[in-house]
């Protein structure tokens, strides 16, 4: 379950944004992505999650192993906290949602409709989804947005527990989570513009 990324080149809206990205994510390890806004962190994570194809390079070891958390949480405001979480547990074929509720301190909110939660509470619910996927590699895009300090601590604890259980995590964030993690600054990997004399010359 080692995620292996080698010489990845990715594009957003037809324009190459990052190239030469290589890393290995072993079980029990975490990797933090850093880099200025708009450099292509989200695009990189979407590529790794399998949502969009890379221009070139290889991603191996991630098949059916990745749980992805995007900017938006995919919550249904009309469903309660339990129903939202139960749905994802069913989709991923796991049973229990109790530990996820507890890990993110959602037990007292369990019967509230997700639409009535605050932004931070929604985020916690979205993150607790990672626990019910039962997948080993967490790929997360800015998970701490709109979380307060105590919630960030809850999240860091959840990630630490996940790593301790042999999972791994790839997180794009600017906050120091207090994890023993490698840091990959993608800034230097900014892609050079395409050469003009490509086959589809100047077409992107």
């Amino acid at each position: 379950m080692t995620l292996n990324v080698s010489d990845l080149r990715i594009a957003r809206g037809g324009l190459p944004v990052l190239e030469g990205i290589s890393f290995v994510l072993k079980p029990g390890a975490a990797l933090i992505l850093r880099g200025p806004n708009g450099i292509g962190k989200t695009t990189l994570l979407r590529c790794i999650a399998g949502l969009q194809p890379a221009l070139s390079g290889q991603i191996t070891g991630g098949e059916e192993q990745i749980a992805y958390a995007a900017h938006s949480d995919g919550l249904k405001p009309a469903l309660t906290v339990t129903e939202n979480l139960r749905f994802w547990a069913d989709v991923f074929g796991t049973r229990s949602i109790k530990h996820a509720l507890e890990a993110f301190d959602l037990t007292t909110l369990r019967d509230r409709p997700a639409g009535a939660l605050s932004a931070g509470q929604k985020r916690r619910l979205g993150l607790s989804r990672m626990l019910v996927t039962g997948r080993a590699i967490w790929v997360m895009d800015e998970p701490t947005v709109s979380l307060d300090q105590s919630s960030v601590a809850l999240f860091a604890a959840a990630v630490r527990a996940h790593l301790g259980a042999g999972g791994s995590a790839l997180i794009a964030t600017h906050i120091d989570l207090g994890l023993e993690a490698e840091i990959l600054d993608v800034g230097p990997y900014k892609a050079a513009p395409l050469a003009f004399d490509d086959f589809d010359g100047g077409f992107l």
Binding site: G14, L15, P193, G202, F203, L204
Partner: peptide, 14 residues
């Protein structure tokens, strides 16, 4: 037209 669009996008990126 496609090439103009591509050049503009390239310019924006640079």
């Amino acid at each position: 037209a496609r090439r103009i669009k591509a050049l503009l996008a390239r310019q924006r990126q640079e």
